[in-house]
């Protein structure tokens, strides 16, 4: 038994969800190898070789791996699989993993399992369905188990103390049916949403993008990440990468403060793993720990000042 983790990185740094994925892979038993495909990724290779639990780092470098296009990475993973015969292939359930692993699975003629939250045994996994309103336990009888891992459901592997060996794998020839043009990433000094201990989210009730400043001010006091409901993103108040919910980010903070959010089930899906919720809204239909009903924006102001 052996597992391949497809590492997500930007050639410079590893994306944190890879650490959670390595923990999930370690739970399966057997050796854990990591595949790093990129254009110039020696720094990432070094970073991964120190992670606890990783036995081997497989490295493939080629210009065609720029932008991590699934059309280019899939043949590489298939070649790697031919060589090493892993029993499991996994990646984080991020936009990267969700884009790539189903393509790999189809080529292997196996049914992949998305976004697992628990490993019962090497062939049995738990995942959420219906926006987290039910949990499904799935047994997979495929020869190779291909799955993506929900980062918030597994601890991050320790980034130090490991001593993996690294090995070059031959780059596959370019498929050249797709081309990566650019990325526009939102820059923020606040913690990353999916791993933040405190999250403050705003909804349509905030009425404008400008009013999100209220949340940013409070977030800076609490060292919190700021998220949003789909309605707020759709209304153009904030960019899409702030969306928390069924189709957005899954968060698992100790404290979740929702401001102007009605609590649609699609949003709740993204924050089921929170520990406490303060709901500042006129609607109180979601599970709450602290209820607060007076005027919303005023309360946030006072809270920011008090802290």
């Amino acid at each position: 038994q052996s597992t391949l983790v497809v590492a997500e990185h930007n050639n410079d740094k590893l994306t944190p969800i890879t650490l959670n994925t390595i923990t999930a892979a370690s739970k399966l038993g057997g050796d854990v190898s990591c595949l790093v495909a990129g254009t110039n990724c020696s720094k990432v290779v070094e970073e991964i070789s120190k992670i606890q639990g990783v036995k081997k780092v497989l490295v493939a470098q080629h210009d065609s791996y720029k932008g991590a296009l699934p059309e280019e990475l899939t043949p590489l993973i298939l070649e790697t699989q031919k060589q090493f015969n892993f029993t499991h292939i996994c990646a984080g359930a991020s936009a990267f993993g969700k884009n790539l692993l189903p393509r790999v699975a189809a080529k292997l003629d196996v049914a992949p399992i998305s976004d697992i939250i628990e490993i019962k045994s090497p062939d049995t996994f738990v995942r959420t369905i219906y926006a987290g309103n039910a949990l499904s336990t799935v047994k997979c009888d495929e020869a190779v188990k291909v799955f993506t891992v929900r980062g918030t459901s597994f601890e991050a592997a320790s980034p130090g103390g490991g001593s993996a060996t690294s090995e070059e794998v031959a780059a596959t020839s370019p498929v050249a049916i797709s081309e990566w043009l650019e990325q526009n990433l939102t820059k923020s000094d606040r913690p990353e949403l999916t791993s933040a201990k405190t999250v403050i989210s705003g909804g349509r009730g905030l009425k404008s993008g400008d009013n999100f400043k209220l949340l940013y001010d409070l977030a800076d006091k609490l060292n919190a990440a700021v998220g949003a409901s789909r309605a707020a993103v759709d209304a153009g108040y904030v960019p899409n990468d702030m969306q928390v919910g069924q189709t957005g980010k899954i968060v698992a903070p100790d404290l979740y403060i929702a401001v102007g959010i009605s609590g649609a089930i699609q949003h709740l899906a993204g924050m089921k793993d929170r520990k406490d919720t303060i709901l500042k809204n006129y609607f109180t239909k979601i599970f709450i720990h602290f209820v607060f009903l007076p005027k919303m924006t005023e309360t946030v102001h006072i809270l920011t000042k008090t802290l």
Partner: peptide, 21 residues
């Protein structure tokens, strides 16, 4: 032919009721 089998479907764990301040 499917080689995936759903063994069971469960309700997610329920949350405790909140307190009001």
């Amino acid at each position: 032919t499917s080689r995936l089998q759903v063994l069971r479907v469960d309700e997610p764990p329920q949350r405790q009721a909140g307190v009001k301040v």
